[in-house]
Nucleic acid binder design. Structure first.
Lengths: 214, 214
DNA sequence: TAGCCGCGGATTGCATCCAATCACAAGGTT
DNA sequence: AACCTTGTGATTGGATGCAATCCGCGGCTA
C-alpha cells in the first residue's frame, strides 16, 4: 500500500542497507547519489532521509547534508540505559499475549543462535529473537520506539560482537535460555528482571571496549 | 541558524500552535493551507510535516493526508507507562548536574504553579518545571525522546486538567514539593521513586476519565 | 431500498528548474 | 607564518507544473 510510494520504498531499502552495514557511521549521504541509485528525483529522496532521521539512522544538518548517525560511547551507554528500562516494560505488556506458536518459534531461533558462527547471522537472529518476544504487545507507540533503539545501536553491536571470541557469547546464550524459560512459565517479574540484566551486562561489556567509538 | 530554513521555521511555528491547542486531535491538515499561511510553497510544508510526524504531533498517511495525532485511552496508558520508566532515568542522570540556580528557578516555578487558576498556565508551568529538572542531563537522545512523550500527551493532559476541580491539583502540588525536596538533597533514589509515583498516579487518574478519549 | 460501480474534483506525490547556502582553496594582510 | 577575506564550485533548499491517487457522489442493478 504505502510501499508503492517512492519515498517510502527508498526509505525502506536504504534502511536495510544501512542496517546491513553498507554505510558505516559518519558516511556522508548525497541526495543525488541516492536519487540516481533508485532512478528517482531528489524530492522523494529528501523525504526518505527525513524518515530515516526519525528512525535515528541518519543525521541531517540544514544546508549542509546528511550523514549516517554516529554515537559516542556515552551516547551508547545512554541508549542502553533506556533499553534497560523500556524493553522490560514492553516484554511485560507482550508476555500475556504470546502464543505457543511464538514460543516454539523462539526455541527454533535460539537453537540457530547457538549454532551459528557468523557475526552477521548472530546479529540478525538476536534481533529476531528479542523482537519476537515483544510481538504480543500490540502497540503503535512502544514498538517503533524499541525498534529505533535497536536501529541506532546496530553498528556498535556489530563492532562489539566482532571483538568477542566464541566464549564471549556464552553469557548471552545462558540469558536467552533463562529468558525463554521465564516466558514459557509466563513469569512476568522474572522475565523482566532477566531481560534487564541481559541488557545491563551487555552495556557493561560494551563500556570495556571504548575503542569501538569515535 | 537552522531556523532560517523555511521548513524548520514552519515546523517550529506549527508545533507551537498545535501544543497550544489551535488544532484539536483528528483535525486534518492540508498542505496548501499551511503553505498559504506561511506564504511558502508546499515543499517546505511537506518537510515540516515529516518533522512533526517524528515529534509525534501529526500522523501522515500516504496519498491521503496529514492529521493531528489522536490517542486512544490505551495509547495514552502506554505512553504514561513509558514515562514512568524513562523520566526517572533522565532525572537520575540530571540530578548530579543541577546547580543552585536551577533549584531556585524550580522554587519560583513551583510557587507560580500553586498560585495560578488558569489551565493553560498550569500546563505550561508544569511542563517547564519537569523539563527543568531534566536540564542537567546533557543528552541528545533521552531529551528529545522525553519531549516527544510530553508533546503527544499534551492534548490529553489539557482535557483531563479541565475536568479537575481546584482540589484535584492538590496531590500534584504535594508531589512537586516532595520532588523538589529530594532534588535539593540530591537524593537520587528518593527523587526517582517520587517521580515514578507522580506519573503513575496521574495515569491512574486519567484512566478514570475515559470520556476524554475517542 | 440497499449495495455496488464508475466518474469527476480535490489533494497528494514526483520531477524539474532556479535560488540560497556552505565548504574549501587561493590570495592578500598583518 | 598564521590569520582573515573573498570567490568559486558543489550541494542543498524552495517554487512550480504535471501526473498519480484517493474520496465522495450519483446512477445503476438486484
Amino acid at each position: 500500500m504505502s510501499d508503492l510510494v517512492t519515498s517510502h520504498r527508498i526509505a525502506a531499502q536504504l534502511k536495510k542497507q544501512i542496517l546491513k552495514g553498507k554505510y558505516p557511521p559518519g558516511t556522508r549521504i548525497r541526495q543525488e547519489d541516492i536519487a540516481d541509485e533508485f532512478k528517482a528525483s531528489r524530492s522523494p529522496v529528501r523525504e526518505a532521509l527525513r524518515i530515516l532521521e526519525a528512525d535515528g539512522l541518519v543525521t541531517l544538518i540544514a544546508n549542509t547534508g546528511a550523514w549516517i548517525s554516529e554515537l559516542s560511547l556515552s551516547d551508547c551507554e545512554e541508549l542502553y540505559q533506556i533499553r534497560e528500562r523500556v524493553e522490560p516494560l514492553m516484554l511485560k505488556l507482550s508476555l500475556p499475549n504470546l502464543t505457543d506458536e511464538h514460543i516454539s518459534m523462539l526455541i527454533t531461533i535460539k537453537k540457530q543462535l547457538e549454532k551459528t558462527n557468523s557475526i552477521e547471522d548472530f546479529l540478525e537472529l538476536d534481533r529476531e529473537f528479542h523482537l519476537l518476544t515483544y510481538e504480543g504487545a500490540s502497540t503503535m507507540l512502544l514498538g517503533p520506539m524499541v525498534e529505533r533503539l535497536w536501529n541506532t545501536t546496530q553498528h556498535y553491536r556489530r563492532a562489539y560482537s566482532r571483538m568477542l571470541e566464541t566464549e564471549g557469547f556464552k553469557p548471552a546464550h545462558l540469558e536467552h535460555e533463562l529468558l525463554l524459560n521465564a516466558i514459557t512459565r509466563k513469569d512476568i517479574e522474572d522475565a523482566e528482571r532477566i531481560l534487564y540484566g541481559h541488557i545491563r551486562r551487555t552495556r557493561l561489556e560494551l563500556e570495556k571496549h571504548p575503542e569501538v567509538f569515535i
